[in-house]
Design a protein around this nucleic acid. Sequence first.
DNA 1: GGCATGTGTATTTTT
DNA 2: TACACATGCC
Length: 702
Amino acid sequence: MTGAWLDELNPAQREAVTHTEGPLLVIAGAGTGKTRTLACRVACLIDRGVPADRILLLTFTRRAAAEMLSRAGRLTSQATAGHVWGGTFHAVGNRLLRIYGEAIGLSRDFTVMDQGDAADLMNLIRGELGLAKTKRRFPRKQTLVAIYSRTVNAQDKLAATVQRYFPWCVEDLDGVKAIFELYVQRKRERNVFDYDDLLLYWEALCAADRVGDAVADRFDHILVDEYQDTNAIQGQIIRLMCKRRQDVMVVGDDAQSIYSFRAATIRNILDFPELFPGTRTVTLEQNYRSTQPILAASNAVMASARERFTKELWSDRASDRKPVLFTCMDEDEQCNSVCDRILEHLERGIPLQRQAVLFRAGHHSSQLEVELSRRNIPFHKYGGLKFVEAAHVKDLLAMLRILENPYDEISWFRVLQLLDGVGARTAQRLIEALGVRRDVPFPGTRENGGGPVSPLKRLLADPLPVPPAAKEGFEQFRILIRECTGLSANGNGNGKSGTAEPAGLSLAAQVERIRAFYDPLLERNYENPAIRSRDIEQLEQIALRYRSRSRFITDLTLDPPTSTSDLAQPPFLEEDYLILSTIHSAKGCEWDVVHIIHAADGMIPSDMAVADEAGVEEERRLFYVAMTRAKDRLYVYFPLRYYHHGARLSDRHSYAQLTRFLPAPVRALFEQRATKLVEAELGGGRRAHVDIHKRLNRLWED
DNA sequence: GGCATGTGTATTTTT
DNA sequence: TACACATGCC
């Protein structure tokens, strides 16, 4: 039953993989074969006869789950690894709530809104409460969502959260509170869940009397990856899921905890042994990824961290190549240097796909992207603006959402305003007339049994307050809805009547029909409609793979394509491309050659994080995560000066400081290089390197 | 009331 | 650069 692969594991890995029962904590340093260990354990459990669909594997991204399960599938003789429940907390919560949610009064057909939708709803409520026009500037909608989400995920008091993390909003606390109350109420009335609800209600489900046990009994084994980046609710969910049997394995590394802005807390991993008595702890310390010099530099960065689990990563991958610290004149030169290095490595046989450029914030790569395009170096960017955040994609999704859940107010609001002659005011009036707003929480029963009439039926049948200017566009819209739902103007479906599932077009046909309706609007509402139209076409392609509209919408919301090229067809994928990624999105990945750009104070650590020590410590871990992504070669770039934004013609600039995470003793573990320009500027011509570095160092000592 | 245009102002990271 | 808000025209 055990495959030969067991022999290829090191003793610590094997201990984790073959652990029989009871709680298991695996502290796995960067590159120590964590993924492999998890995949092997899944395979091992299946080989031992645990039914695959009674194994729950919680990961940070769906991609991670998919990779582990496909690896596990290759290891086990059983062909059932695909039946393992794998995915993010949010995706699994969604799935469980649709199955068991009715027991706690939830309706099965809720829609899930992403952060942008949540922000729009906050904004709507803020307007209604008249908080938009106060003397002082009220917190922006994204800030509101951030405050809300952090409070909920940390299970903390609002006042404390604002005080601590959003001090500039303290004065608006009353307004914020009022908005949140309405926000929560609105979501329930509209049968809409935000990301946080998926966790919140999952927890409620677990805590509920009968169904709680049923949910907990659903699984024999639970495995959680990246446990250092789980938050209070997620920790609580795990505890509740394990109330009947404690066969749970959590894997994590405190040195790589980088999601505290999402209320992740390291306490989950630190306190695990106390919360789960009898925990067996296994530590993985052998790094298989990086060369020894890269590891030495990374360890040195972490050595000055305030508190950490003591573990010393080691590697037997010797190399005489130290990581390189590259000083450039400015961002322009940084771009050039990066491109030069990349092409150098490419010529020496390292394909672009095995190289990555990492940075702190999404926009840090914009100038580099221009230069890469200029040089015809194809790239693929992770993090930053996503496909589904583009306005036109949201428009299309909103149309599908109202078909799915006719009480989804945000989506109505968005869709109606697309129509010619309809603005915010008219849209609101229409929403009211359609009966989208109801004061009944938890709409479990619909039209059956004398419930409210669906807004979709009203749209087709009722006289509505449509201003003359909007008449024509509105008529088109009516036709669209009629065709998609199969409802007729007198309010009856042409199949089974009175059910929530209309006898309309197939999903693909609906999307196609919507696109025909939407294309002209696209032209009117946005610039470069051609590109946007192509995106919509791609969406149509994806829709072909789905039969269920609900699945399609939810998948796009919970697991959005990371960028437009994710949607590219096979011929595109075969092409070699460079990876650009935020450090956060690079978590769990590895590349032969890694380039970290903007290693300046203010970028890493980010200006916004240095207010308190905890913030700086997290930035340190972030830098550590970035460094430990490298297998063979690591380059860190530091531009000496930054030009002040916007000034195209002005040369106003200021000198940057090298990131504080590379003090002299750590720098000694790097090979230090500078561009010719830097040498010229600092050395006044052709001086010896030593001299230049002395002068450079002077710049860095505060 | 709807919508185009202009102005001033900012808090990184993601499910 | 985007977004929130004010203004002015249809």
